[in-house]
Design a protein around this nucleic acid. Sequence first.
DNA 1: TAAATATATGCAGAGAAAGATATATATTGA
DNA 2: TCAATATATATCTTTCTCTGCATATATTTA
Lengths: 107, 107
Amino acid sequence: MNTKKFQKTADLFQMLSHPVRLQMMDELRKREACVCHLQAVTGRPQAYISQQLRILRDADLVVDEKDGQNVFYHLRSEAVRMLLQELLGDADVPSHPKDCTCPFCSS
Amino acid sequence: MNTKKFQKTADLFQMLSHPVRLQMMDELRKREACVCHLQAVTGRPQAYISQQLRILRDADLVVDEKDGQNVFYHLRSEAVRMLLQELLGDADVPSHPKDCTCPFCSS
DNA sequence: TAAATATATGCAGAGAAAGATATATATTGA
DNA sequence: TCAATATATATCTTTCTCTGCATATATTTA
C-alpha cells in the first residue's frame, strides 16, 4: 500500500514537530553534546531530556557515544541535517551556558 | 526569544505529520487538483477533504482558485515542494481514479 | 426556475496520542 | 561515595483524529 509511504514520512515529521526536540537537534548540529549540555541549553530537567533523547534515538535521528562519565549525542541522518539547514538556516556557534559542566563548557 | 523560531518550525512539521494531508500534497505536486479529485484519490468524504484543505490553506501551504463549479488547489511553497521531493522522491504522474468527475479525470 | 453538483463550514462526541511533570531506581565511572 | 545518565512508571492534561450530520452558498444544467 502507498499509505505506508506517507505514514512513514508522517512519522518522521512527527518526530520533528516538537520545539524542544528541534532545539536539541539544532544544538546537536552545531556540535555533539551530552545530556547536561542539552539540559542547560533548554532549561529542562534531566529526565525530560533523557526521554526526548530516547525518542530521537528510537527514531534513528541521533546516536549516542559514551565517553567516560558523559554520553555524547550527535545527529545521525544527513537528510535531517539538511532539513534543519533549509528551515533553520546555517548552524550557529555552539551555546556556552554558564551552568553546564560538560568538557566543552567548562574549558 | 529563540523558542519562537523552533515553535514555528515545529508547527510546519506538525502540518506535514499527517498521512492524508501528505497524500493530498503529494497529489498536488503532480498537478493542481479539485476537491472531488482528492476525495477519489484518498477515499475520504468531501467534508473531511475540505477540512484538511482548510488546515493546509490556513498554514499557507496550498492556494485555492475557483474555476466554474470546481475549486482547484495547488501547492504554494517551493520549500515544501522541495521537502516532498527529498522525502518522497520524484513526483509521479497524476492519479486517474475512475470515480472522479473532475475535468482532468473525465476527459 | 428547479434540481443537481461542488464546496465550505460548523459542531459534537469519542477515542487515541502526545506532552509535561514527578518520582524512584539502577548503572557506571571518577 | 558522588555525579551523570538511563529507564520505568504514573498521572494529568491537552491536543489530534475521525466520524457523522447538518447547513449554506455558488454554479451549472435540465
